[in-house]
Amino acid sequence: MASATVTIGTRGSQLALWQAEWVKSAILANHPAIRVELAIIKTRGDKILDVPLAKVGGKGLFVKEIEEALLDGRIDLAVHSMKDMPADIPTGLCIGAIPKREEPRDVLITRSGDPLEALPQGARVGTSSLRRAAQLLHVRPDIRIVPLRGNLDTRLKKLETESLDAIVLAAAGVRRLGLADRITQVLDETVMLPAVGQGALCIETRTDDSRIGAVVGALDDPTTRQVVLGERAFLNRLEGGCQVPIAGHGHMDANGFTLTGLVCDVDGSRQIKQTRTGAPDQSEQIGLALAEALLAAGAGAILERLNEHAQSS
């Protein structure tokens, strides 16, 4: 291993590079003799910046090209934001490690410094996430959602250049780039339930590559992995993608594993939300059970309608 080189595949955004550099540093801390390189790969999601994510369609917008490079051996491992990962992992690949999670919640950044409840009537709020838009409209049906794409720095600039009153971002990205002082309000989960996997990293490897498996295995946080796998089981059962407002967040405490899931109409008018708790080692079963409960409560009809609309548009 002393003379080995490890190549990490990553997107080229400032946040993606921060995440890849963090993994690189963690690998070198455990294996200082290894040479670690970054390979920047442009994904379809990086190329299409003038269309809302929900209209681009498909799963894996920010990971597919990187996974192809991993499968054909151009890179040894990939670093993704877990919330970008489709429910299904391609044959031959696996989640090699999930490091300890950063803050999973969303944050509001406003020009005025006012929190969500104090924004003016008809305030313009920037986001291209149906999940965020639907939950915002559920509590503030008067606000106007403005499509917002681009990397974190670009979206922060658009807060000023496009005369927005506020934007919504993932707390993890804002904190990782040292911009926590820009946060106006951390949105409570009762208002804005996070995306599945938000705040966590996914280190993806080839299933049969025991060398890299051993290198990244030390970066895995067992508690975070158990929680995230429960969330992803929930998402997988609902077959959720960018076209439907689905949220899910779990945590471990003295009572075991608790998972809250949500399915919402895009206009925020109807929101189906439930919570399940169980044994820590049953997180995936709890995720499946929660999904079934939401489907039985009416989420199935919402998802069917939204998927039909997405296919016809």
Rank of each mutant, 00 (worst) to 15 (best):
R182F: 11
G268I: 13
L61M: 14
A293G: 08
A214P: 04
E308Q: 15
P115Y: 01
T223V: 12
A133R: 02
G268Q: 09
L53G: 14
P99T: 04
H251N: 10
E102P: 07
T275D: 12
A39V: 11
R225N: 07
H138T: 09
H31P: 01
H138W: 06
K157S: 15
V36L: 07
E160K: 09
L288Q: 12
G256W: 12
D220S: 03
A289D: 13
R131E: 09
N30K: 04
V186T: 11
G58R: 01
G197P: 08
P86V: 13
R132F: 08
I98H: 00
L77K: 07
I34S: 02
K273S: 07
D220C: 07
T184L: 12
L15T: 14
A289Q: 09
E189H: 00
A289I: 11
I41R: 00
T91W: 06
S283K: 06
E67L: 15
C242K: 11
G199I: 03
R35G: 10
D76F: 07
V56A: 05
E21G: 12
R237Y: 15
A54N: 06
C94Q: 03
E204F: 04
E304Q: 10
Q135S: 01
T110K: 00
V36P: 05
A118R: 02
I27R: 01
D50T: 13
E231T: 03
D165H: 04
K273R: 03
V107Q: 00
T154F: 03
L295R: 06
R124D: 04
G261C: 14
G12K: 01
A118N: 02
G217Y: 06
L17M: 13
N151R: 00
G230A: 05
G250W: 06
R211A: 13
T91A: 15
A134W: 04
R144I: 14
I167N: 06
T43S: 14
V63Q: 03
A279E: 15
V186I: 14
